[in-house]
C-alpha cells in the first residue's frame, strides 16, 4: 500500500499515513507527496492527519506540524489523538543503562515513578523502584528489590525490605536521612557533610552498608 495517501472528505483534506514505515522515512514521503500535489492543495489549507491505529507522540506531532508548516500547510487535527503522556518515558535511557550493570540485576518488575516524593509520602513496591525525581526528607521509599533515584535522595530508602542483602540503593545525589538495606540501617552523620557531586551507590559489603561512587570500576 502507498504509505502516504491524500483524500478529500466533508471535513477537508485527510492525509492517510502508513505507520509501519520509519517515522523519518514517512516524513520524507509526506514531503514528496505534498510537493507533487501542490496545485491540488491550496495555500494554508488545514489537513487532517490519519495515522490509522498508531497514535503519534507529542514530539512526532510537533515534527509533523513543523514539516507541514514549511510546506505552507497546517494541521487541523490528528486521528487518533496525539498521545501526550507516554513520550517522556521512551526517551529516558535510565532503565537500559542500569540493566547493563550486573549490580542492577532485576528482581521482579520495576516500578517507575516520575515525580518528586514529598514529606509524608511513602512508596512500597515488591520489586525494584526507579524514581525519576527527588525524594525529600520525610518521604520514604521501600522496595523488596533495588532503589534507583535519578535525582536527590534525601528521605528514607529501604531496599531489599524483605531481607535481600544483594539489594542496592543508587542515587544521583545520595544524601538520605536514613538508609536501610535488608536488616542493616545507617543514618546520616550528625555533623554536616558535603553534598555528593556524583552518583553514588550503597550496598552491603562484609555485613556493613558501604557507599561508593557509582562510576568507579
Amino acid at each position: 500500500m502507498e504509505p502516504v495517501i491524500l483524500k478529500g472528505n466533508r471535513e477537508g483534506v485527510v492525509v492517510h499515513l502508513d505507520c509501519n514505515l520509519d517515522f523519518n522515512e514517512l516524513c520524507a514521503r509526506i514531503e514528496a507527496k505534498i510537493k507533487a500535489a501542490d496545485t491540488f492543495l491550496g495555500n494554508k489549507t488545514e489537513v487532517i492527519i490519519n495515522s490509522g491505529s498508531v497514535a503519534f507522540n507529542f514530539g512526532q506531532a510537533q515534527q509533523l506540524r513543523d514539516l507541514l508548516d514549511s510546506l505552507g500547510l497546517g494541521i487541523k487535527k490528528f486521528i487518533p489523538e496525539v498521545n501526550n503522556q507516554e513520550e517522556v518515558l521512551k526517551d529516558i535511557p535510565v532503565p537500559q543503562v542500569v540493566i547493563d550493570d550486573t549490580r542492577f540485576l532485576a528482581q521482579g518488575p520495576a516500578l517507575i515513578i516520575r515525580k518528586n516524593l514529598r514529606s509524608g509520602q511513602s512508596i512500597f513496591h515488591d520489586g525494584t523502584i526507579i524514581i525519576l525525581g527527588d525524594v525529600n526528607p520525610g518521604a520514604e521509599v521501600i522496595a523488596t528489590g533495588h532503589i534507583l533515584v535519578i535525582g536527590n535522595l534525601r528521605g528514607i530508602a529501604h531496599a531489599g525490605a524483605k531481607g535481600d542483602t544483594r539489594a542496592v540503593v543508587f542515587a544521583s545525589r545520595l544524601q538520605p536521612t536514613q538508609l536501610r538495606i535488608a536488616n542493616f540501617i545507617t543514618r546520616a552523620p550528625d555533623e554536616e557533610v558535603l553534598v555528593p557531586l556524583e552518583p553514588e551507590i550503597a550496598r552491603i559489603k562484609d555485613e556493613m552498608v558501604v557507599i561508593e561512587k557509582y562510576m568507579q570500576k
Binding site: G120, P137, G138, T177, Q178, I185, R187, A188, D190
Partner: peptide
Amino acid sequence: IGLRNLDVVMGLENRIV
C-alpha cells in the same frame, strides 16, 4: 501524626525507625 516536627527540632530525625 502526618506533620511531625519534634524530631527535627531535637535533631534526631535521622534515627527514626
